[in-house]
Write a protein that binds this DNA or RNA. Sequence first.
DNA 1: ATAGGGTTAG
Length: 375
Amino acid sequence: MHSMKERDVVSWTSLITAYSRIGQEENALVSASVLFRGMRCRDVISWSTIIGGYSQGGFAEEGFEYFSWMRRSGTKPTDFALASLLSVSGNLAVLEQGRQVHALALYLGLEQIPTIRSALINMYSKCGSIVEASKVFEETERGADIVALTAMINGYAEHGRSKEAIDLFEKSLNVGCRPDAVSFISVLTACSHSGQLGLGFHYFNLMQEKYNMSPAKEHYGCMVDLLCRAGRLCEAERMIDEMPCEKDDVVWTTLLRACTAKRDVEVGRRAAERILEVEPTSSTALVTLANIYSSSGKWKEAAIVRKSMKSKGVIKEPGWSSVLIKDRVSAFASGGRSHPQSEDIYSVLELLVPVAEPLRYGCEMKRDSESIQIL
DNA sequence: ATAGGGTTAG
């Protein structure tokens, strides 16, 4: 029999899950957070849920903050929360924070759990340390599963090592590992980065013929990218037209950007129009369209697009990046605005794992090492 | 009731 209290925890946690999945915008997360703080009793799943919610929304600071509270409350974390934190560390490229979570995983004896393995590979790779990523990959005791494999393939592809990416994919096929939809996106990306159009089509056919999978819009996106890089803009456009699934703005944007580089006004204009049909104020489409015109000397047309942006009140969102300055992660936007999400992650982490000296993977980070002290 | 890998680009 469940006590009233236990039922409470489960239903409150379900609500928190629901809120963090609504849009993963900050408002929904604030609601989730309000619910969480109002709980009378929390268990490890409720803590993992709120941490996962913020992490998936890209809010590393809040994720780590809740994690710190969780530990101070005496709740021992499981692989769930750690996997979420590794994921957000990778997405924001905060290597030191990711390393600390790795340290903790070792300390807690969770480092060989498959979700942790793949999250670690991804984290190190996204943080630029492909060497550590492949080290984790190699040290996977029971062999990498499809998720870890995909993380590794992606890592190689993103680091410009397409040959290794493709070799690894092939090797996994040879040992009888069944590829899934995501792993095909990875290998197609590798083909695309290395300009191997033919090989890309080989995998595109293979997934359909041998594995009975129908390509999703992401796979078509890779093929469009491949065709664009090969300069075959018309074929790329035809590929989009013939896609049997949703043609989102991502795939049109791929084509549009390629048109700037190749100065193809005609195809570019059509691509921009398709995006603008759905989203008339798309700043990406309008800015890129204006760039295509100016790159091919059509100043008048460029000016018309710029003017229409002004009259529609379209503003290009500034890009931003985070930089580590003296132990602080700060965010800077090109427009001078700072991004509120990623400030001060480091100061929160000091609460998390105080260490006597800097951690280095494979050295001080041993499970029973004295150098890792946990609050 | 919770978790890991996902294409675009100057």
